[in-house]
Computed example of a mutant assay.
Amino acid sequence: MRRFWLGLAAASVVSACGGGNPFTTTTDDDTGTDTGSGSREGLPPGTDNPSANAAIFRSEPTEADGGERGDGYATGISYDADTDTFTVDNLGFDGDNTYSRGTAIASLGPYSVYEADTTFPDIIDGQLINQFAHRAIYGVSTSGNTEFAIVRTGDYVDYGFGGFIYQRHNGVSLPSSGQAVYTGSMAGIRDFDGAGGLEYSTADAQIAIDFDDFNDTTGTRGDAVRGVFNNRRIFDINGNDITSDVISRIETQNSIDLNGELPTLVFDVGPGALDDNGELVGTLHSNYINSSGAISTFEEGNYYAVMSGDNPDEIVGVMVVTTGLDPAATTVRETGGFIVYNPD
């Protein structure tokens, strides 16, 4: 499978939410689950031989690689700066595969939102055919060295078909000691198993790394990584802030008190989260206090990320969590992309 992604013109990068980026389409021919030199279990498919000195590309695992049915189908992703449009291949009923800047929601914080066509003409008589609700979120760092994209579909009873990708265009130089903290934001799409529809999400993001510990016991780095996504908000597909409505329906259905806010997502801290190539992988979760006063799990899932820069300066990644406590569906999935920075 040939994947198309966004080539970097680093000399003149501007923010995606500003209406255009100097990116051109390039190709990435790596296929399958990453098993190359320096790779490790848990990384999404992509670059077969990752290195600290080179670009790294990752995409959502398909069902064959451990993902959900419909995961990893979005391919051929490219961006046209002249028209501020996205191209996404391999998803049924998304018009001519060209996604335009969102109308109800054009951006979520620093990240851009794109929509597929709502109708498409019959090739014989021109009759308009209703299309599925496909949405995409694209994020590019201020340096242009890292980026992500998420595509989801809202017109299936289960999660439907979509995908995510993230990458860095350069290498990374990792410290051998000390700690660093990175701050930024997350934007995501919530889709449902057991119901149609889509919702958007946002959050503040912070990631801290201990480059001293945990101690190396396996021949690779053992660095500990701590992450937090808080100040979380949810928006409907028309751009209305429905956070309080979502909280209310969860509290009512489960007879719990969330204290007026969605629980904070936190990384599970343990050895080996960061490797020598600057890639991060691990699990995360959020908690709430149940009716008995005990701590219970609200959401859980995985995060995937890669560091970039000589200092290093930034981290890009994607997190995916699910919960069965939202009565909107049997299970609600949130797929969020994030970019965080440690400025000089």
Score class of each variant (00 low, 15 high):
8 L>K: 12
9 A>D: 14
11 A>N: 14
12 S>I: 07
14 V>L: 08
14 V>Y: 05
14 V>K: 09
22 P>T: 15
40 R>G: 05
41 E>R: 06
44 P>W: 04
45 P>G: 00
48 D>C: 05
58 R>E: 07
59 S>R: 09
59 S>D: 05
66 G>T: 08
67 G>T: 06
78 S>K: 11
81 A>F: 11
83 T>P: 10
86 F>D: 08
87 T>M: 03
88 V>R: 09
89 D>Y: 02
90 N>H: 11
103 T>G: 07
104 A>L: 08
107 S>E: 01
109 G>H: 00
110 P>G: 02
115 E>C: 12
118 T>V: 03
119 T>F: 08
120 F>T: 10
125 D>I: 13
126 G>H: 01
129 I>A: 01
135 R>Q: 10
136 A>N: 06
145 N>H: 10
145 N>K: 12
154 G>T: 06
156 Y>F: 14
158 D>H: 08
169 H>M: 04
171 G>D: 09
187 A>I: 00
192 F>G: 01
194 G>N: 12
202 T>S: 03
208 A>H: 02
217 T>C: 07
220 T>K: 04
221 R>Y: 01
222 G>R: 01
222 G>A: 02
224 A>L: 07
228 V>T: 07
230 N>F: 08
241 D>F: 11
251 E>N: 12
252 T>C: 05
256 I>C: 04
260 G>P: 04
261 E>L: 10
264 T>V: 15
269 V>H: 06
275 D>M: 03
275 D>W: 01
281 V>Y: 05
285 H>R: 14
293 G>L: 10
296 S>P: 05
299 E>Y: 09
299 E>C: 14
309 G>K: 00
318 V>I: 15
322 T>H: 06
334 E>Q: 15
334 E>V: 15
339 I>P: 03
340 V>L: 03
